[in-house]
Amino acid sequence: MIRLADGAVFARLVDLAVCEPSMSVVELRVGRLRRPLQMELRVTPWRPGRSARALVELVPDERRVPLTGAYFEAGHRLLDHIIDELVVPEAHALKESPGRPRG
């Protein structure tokens, strides 16, 4: 799922085994001569206990800032990278196991 609303750059539902919500500060930079923008990377468990899914979103610190598309694209790339790093092997196993119910 990808959405653009409420100041969030976007959020994505992924197969990610997390038990507790977490928040960390990340920066998006477009080139060396443009200002890095701070954002919160939020990972929220989605229906915990039933599946290994989590909501991952990047939220600008400055919610009223009209971000340019370049930062959106940088945000997409960052989230893609983070998700690639975080997706757990168990989640892949769930996908590949035909007998297991999926949420």
Partner: peptide
Amino acid sequence: RFLSPVARPDQLERL
């Protein structure tokens, strides 16, 4: 210039 709003020059220190 910066592709985002900048209120104060100190926000640009890291550039």
